[in-house]
Simulated assay, not measured.
Amino acid sequence: MSTSNQLLVNIKKQAQNLARIQEIKLNEAYEIISWAFYHCPNYQDLLKRLQDPNQKVHWFELAILNSSPDNVTLEKFRNIVPTFVTRLSSRVQTNTNLLELTEQIYQIFNLPVPEDCFNSLFLNADINSNWNVVLNSKHSSHTVLENKIKINGICYKLLAISVFMPNYWPFKDPHQIDIAGEISPSMSNE
């Protein structure tokens, strides 16, 4: 099988995966894949470029990921994922956040989703995994935690607050609602 044919087979698999994951028509998936991943205006243009060796753009290197991913290509893919997320989200109405969309892109390419998938969204982010305890209450340790994240050279402080408010839980059974009301704190210091 020629390289162009193998690339086309992989691109078709990617379109099928996109159609399945996003529950869209296959012909729409071909158009979206062409534009979002391979920077072609439409699927017909992508087919023309695949047939002409002089027209192949560097994006076609990523089409081989389904058949034979090597470390260099995988690293290149990981670096381009934020661009794919942006381009794909502009073409697909999705009921998901950027992290889930990133995971879907790995699924489209039949690649395992890395554990640090969140970090791939922010290429210029320095995420500290050490959470510091800011406040402990007498009822619960780790009531307020803080961490710092640096994105594009700007430092942000993250706060994680432990809140126990069972009276706001979505119970439907009146007995459960009564129990939630009894165990819920009524004062801010409880």
Rank of each mutant, 00 (worst) to 15 (best):
N124K: 10
E75N: 08
Q93P: 06
L145W: 00
E100F: 06
S90P: 05
L145R: 03
S141N: 13
E61Y: 12
S68H: 11
K150G: 04
K138N: 14
V57K: 14
T86M: 12
E75T: 04
T73V: 09
D70W: 01
K138E: 15
R78K: 12
R87D: 12
S162Y: 03
N95T: 07
I80H: 03
L111K: 10
V163P: 00
N97W: 08
L98I: 06
F77M: 06
Q44L: 14
V163W: 04
T102G: 02
T102M: 10
F122V: 03
P166W: 14
E100K: 10
V163L: 10
N71Q: 11
A125G: 02
I108N: 01
V144T: 11
I161N: 06
L88Y: 00
F122P: 02
F60I: 06
K138P: 04
D70H: 05
S137W: 04
I64W: 07
I161W: 02
Q55Y: 07
P82L: 04
W59V: 09
S67I: 05
F77T: 12
E61T: 14
T73P: 02
I151H: 00
K157V: 06
L101W: 02
M165E: 15
V144N: 07
T73Q: 00
T102W: 03
F122I: 07
S129F: 07
D173A: 13
F122L: 07
N79D: 07
L111M: 11
Y156W: 10
Y106W: 08
S120C: 07
Q55I: 08
L46Q: 04
L158R: 10
N152I: 03
K150N: 03
L135K: 12
S141E: 15
L101V: 10
F171R: 02
N124L: 01
V144Q: 08
Q104H: 10
L135S: 12
N119K: 04
P82E: 00
N119Y: 09
T94G: 02
N66R: 10
V133N: 04
P82Q: 08
C117H: 10
H175E: 13
P114M: 09
Q93I: 09
P170F: 04
K148C: 13
I149N: 06
I151P: 06
T83M: 12
I80A: 06
F84A: 08
Q55F: 14
D116N: 14
L50R: 15
M165V: 15
